[in-house]
Design a protein around this nucleic acid. Structure first.
Length: 809
DNA sequence: TGTCGAGTTAAGTCT
DNA sequence: TAACTCGACA
């Protein structure tokens, strides 16, 4: 906290207090970024260079020097995590309420804009947000309705197509049609749009596109926000897509002859080396476009790293050197070399997991690390399962981020669908989801009839119910009546009461009560009530939901905002997080706000927060975080780099940046691990060690795996990069099966091996293990392996070029 | 119409 | 491996 009397002059005063406590402890580059003069600027911030600190201090600085009031600031991030952290740091730094500032994710801020101007945006006040699952089921429903051949047009691909179009800012009429297939897809895109509009729902892409169009087409509104936001700060700028950049330009000012005419100041903070979202339309090129189009005068590089020791940083630097498309940047540290980066090789993914768990035990018991400072990173969510089960068996608390998120669980989606139907009876996606769940005798046939009726009448499923006759009609009407009752009862009830009543009336609790594994689900549903409860408390619903414009002390502004240079002809929209209707002044109901929360923040804070638990997440989810100890598992060709990304150069470079992000998460100790075989999608695969391991400097590494036992599997790096044999004595302890799995001696593969004749289902004889049954055969030629179950020794993988096997029957 | 089991298929990162 | 679809049967 800094004393208020340090405030340097009134509005627009020159920031002269260079010895402000705010600036203490910043290095020269950071200080330069924090105290940048007005105008557009780009900060290239390397990993661990104190980027978040710079951003938040910059905001505090702007406020402290009176250059802007809280309402004049907009800070955009990509993840809720980042937005939350920024808000938290700011409230610790500033002596007044930060709620008046627009700090949030792109999608969160778009939602806020659309809520506030839903009439102008052509949306109902209660519009709902579709997540990826909802979007897919909406598309499936559409395809079925129009009899689309889902072989030729898989619904999933259609959702990608639609999302891709929106990311490029294209409506159906804007999409260039080159071939009949595209023509069809565009038609479906248009139909999908109509369906969403009819049902009052928007997907993620629509949130962005719709609010972009709102700003583009409504000059008065645009002028208002341009006037209002004097300072726009954008985090992770390298991850912006075309549409997001265009959206920013609308807010920043008017674009004339390719140049930005702007009275506001845009600060873009990014790191081209950490661009890992090209797959969802991110354009690193936005950085250079920004410099050109905004005529950026100030560029600052933050290269001093405060996070990691030398060996870790050297590894990161050496790795990213292999990329060709870079702006160029090299991290440095004063912290000394630190420990070497440890590299581990395991025979199987199970061994890898056991080793990680054993290592974690040591770290906690012997080296005094707390579990929450240890992270296990992996390329894809599917990898977490094995590690989870080992951690679970070892009794080590852990927390998994991402993956199956709380709000994406089936029972929670069902509950939310009921809540959405209470809010908006025309939400057909939700209607379809729960009309017969729990089962109430409304079968597929009845639903089909209902859909046809609705389509013919051009109304929602809810409204079409009365037109359906017979027994089916009666049952449908019963369902709708039930929902009507719930809707009426929700009036004047607390969110908690509404949800509890819904769980009861819908029959969800009863249903799961009779199900075998329903107890967990019931627990989750109760957790939903808790989530709603704490949401209501945190957001302060029920009190004065509209935050008034504030002065620096948090007291409401008594003087006109015009003194801040704001356009007073429009209402000042200092709104609570989830927005208020600017035209009517109505605020969202707690239920509406909670549904928004559920859709936009998929609930990464499920697990027991606060517990000292090992952190598990994908590399993507780890961006922006840091830990004392980091394990990166599954460093194998095909997995990391992922095979789908290996075909083209761009994809491979993105994978490398991903690896760069992973490495730079570690402060003190980094473990890299790969496994020779891995259960993937139900098959055992054999992968070479990742090329990324080879790209690291030998001097920074230390191999802790014992080499040997795997003849032809010898990692390709073995040739040049010295596989020092087991430097750690405990190798045998954490890989008890190790020596047995491949019990055959290592001999050079014989060239004349291919015609082995071993096939699944055969019984074979092994000189040491006796008779066994072949479970599977993988690979060909010298690389062929068989998985054989020996009654007395268990299932083993044997290299057919080496093992002496005879076929018994 | 609901339920259950067999067969099929996809499989990656996120708001 | 897990989620999903489809067909047989009650």
């Amino acid at each position: 906290m800094f004393p208020i009397d340090l405030l340097d002059g009134a509005h627009g005063g020159t920031p002269s207090s260079q010895n402000s406590p705010l600036l203490q402890g910043l290095n020269d580059e950071q200080r330069a970024a924090v105290t940048l003069p007005q105008g557009h600027a780009l900060v290239l911030a390397g990993a661990g260079s104190g980027k978040t600190r710079v951003l938040t201090t910059r905001i505090a600085w702007l406020l402290q020097t009176g250059q802007v009031s809280p309402g004049g600031i907009m800070a955009v991030t990509f993840t809720n995590k980042a937005a939350k952290e920024m808000t938290a740091r700011l409230s610790a730094m500033l002596p007044y309420n930060v709620r008046g500032m627009w700090i949030g994710t792109f999608h969160g801020l778009c939602n806020r804009l659309l809520r506030a101007h839903h009439v102008a945006a052509g949306l109902p006040a209660t519009f709902q947000i579709l997540d990826t699952q909802d979007q897919l089921s909406a598309v499936k429903r559409l395809c079925k309705q129009y009899g689309v051949d889902d072989e030729r047009f898989p619904p999933k691909q259609l959702t990608w197509f639609i999302a891709g179009c929106k990311e490029e800012g294209m409506r159906p009429q804007d999409v260039p049609v080159a071939d009949p297939d595209t023509k069809k897809k565009v038609e479906l895109y248009a139909l999908y749009e109509a369906q969403c509009q009819r049902e009052g729902v928007v997907d993620f892409g629509e949130l962005m596109l719709r609010s972009f169009e709102l700003l583009r087409d409504d000059a008065a509104l645009r002028a208002h926000y341009q006037q209002r936001f004097r300072f726009l700060l954008v985090d992770e700028f390298q991850d912006t897509n075309k549409l997001q950049y265009a959206w920013l330009k609308q807010l920043a000012g008017e674009f004339v002859n390719g140049k930005m005419q702007s009275t506001s100041s845009v600060l873009a903070v990014g790191d081209d080396d950490q661009s890992i979202y090209a797959f969802r339309g991110a354009r690193v090129g936005n950085m250079s476009d920004f410099v050109r189009e905004f005529d950026v005068q100030h560029q600052i590089k933050l290269e001093q790293n405060y996070r990691s020791y030398g060996n870790i940083l050297d590894s990161a630097n050496a790795l990213i050197e292999h990329n060709s498309q870079r702006l160029g940047k090299n991290l440095r540290t004063d912290q000394g070399a630190g420990e070497p980066v440890r590299v581990m090789e395991s025979p199987t993914d199970l061994d890898e997991a056991s080793w990680i768990v054993g290592e974690i035990k040591d770290l906690v018991r012997n080296d005094g690390y707390s579990r929450q400072e240890i992270a296990i990173l992996y390329r894809s969510n599917a990898q977490s399962r094995v590690i989870e089960s080992k951690l679970f068996n070892a009794g080590i608390p852990y927390r998994v981020y991402g993956g199956q998120r709380f709000f994406e669980r089936a029972e929670i989606k069902h509950a939310l669908a009921y809540l959405r139907l209470i809010e908006n009876p025309h939400d057909d996606t939700s209607f379809m989801r729960v009309v017969n769940f729990p089962a109430r005798g409304i079968g597929a046939r009845s639903v089909e009839t209902l859909q046809e009726t609705a389509r013919a009448a051009g109304c929602s499923l809810n409204d079409a119910v009365t037109a359906v006759g017979g027994a089916a009609g009666t049952k449908l009407q019963g369902f709708v009546a039930k929902m009507d009752v719930l809707r009426e009862e929700a009036e004047g009830k607390t969110l908690r009461q509404t949800i509890e009543r819904m769980l009861e009336v819908s029959g969800l609790i009863d249903h799961y009560g009779t199900e075998k594994e329903g107890q967990d689900r019931i627990e989750n549903l109760k957790e939903l009530i808790n989530a709603a409860e704490s949401f209501v408390t945190q957001e302060g619903f029920g009190k004065d939901a509209v935050a008034l414009p504030m002065d620096e002390t948090g007291a409401p502004l008594t003087q006109s905002p015009a003194s801040q240079g704001l356009d007073t002809s429009l209402p000042v929209l200092d709104l609570p997080l989830n927005g208020t209707d600017a035209e009517t002044g109505e605020t969202l109901s707690p239920l509406q706000a909670f549904l928004v929360h559920a859709a936009l923040e998929a609930g990464d804070n499920q697990a027991q927060a606060g517990q000292d638990a090992v952190q598990m997440m994908t590399v993507h989810a780890s961006k922006g975080l840091e830990f004392d100890v980091v394990f990166i598992g599954g460093l194998e060709e095909g997995l990391f780099p992922h095979e789908n990304a290996m075909s083209d150069r761009g994809g491979l470079e993105e994978e490398r940046r991903l690896m760069y992000v992973a490495i730079t998460r570690a402060r003190k100790r980094l473990y890299l691990s790969h496994s020779q075989s891995r259960m993937l999608h139900g098959r055992t695969t054999f992968n070479l060690p990742s090329r990324f391991i080879d790209e690291l400097p030998e001097s920074a590494l230390k191999w802790i795996s014992a080499r040997g036992g795997f003849g032809s599997f010898a990692p390709k790096s073995a040739a040049g990069s010295g596989w020092q044999s087991g430097a750690r004595g405990q190798f045998g302890a954490y890989s008890p099966k190790g020596p047995e799995v491949f019990a055959n001696p290592v001999v050079p593969a014989q060239k004349a091996a291919p015609a082995h004749g071993i096939a699944k289902g055969l019984t074979v004889f092994h000189t040491k293990f006796g008779e066994g049954k072949v479970l599977a055969v993988e690979g060909a030629g010298d690389d062929a392996r068989a998985h054989i179950n020996f009654p007395r020794h268990g299932a083993k993988w044997l290299a057919l070029a080496i093992a002496k096997l005879t076929i018994v029957d």
